[in-house]
């Protein structure tokens, strides 16, 4: 079953499979390091369904869960 980034709990690590977003957002995401094959770690999530903080390489990012739901991932060690 495909997993999406918003389903991961803090401290989970996963590998990005696909970005189900429009071309423009995809470009911005990949500029920030979010691209297929990249390892992401969830650092924390904010209460009341607020945004989540993730780490890709040496970059920390915040994004809303709506966008995270469109990032397909596979769990990794």
């Amino acid at each position: 079953m495909p997993l999406s980034l918003n389903q991961l709990a803090p401290a989970a690590i996963a590998v990005i499979h696909a970005l189900n977003v429009g071309q423009d957002l995809r470009r911005r995401m990949s500029g920030l390091g979010l691209r297929p094959g990249a390892r992401v770690q969830v650092i924390r999530t904010s209460p009341l369904n607020g945004p989540m903080q993730i780490r890709v390489g040496h970059t920390d990012l915040i994004l809303r869960r709506a966008e995270a739901a469109r990032i397909e991932v596979a769990a990794a060690g």
Binding site: D60, L63, R64
Partner: peptide, 9 residues
């Protein structure tokens, strides 16, 4: 514009 921000150190 979706919120997608870098969190600098």
């Amino acid at each position: 514009e979706p919120l997608l921000l870098e969190l600098p150190p």
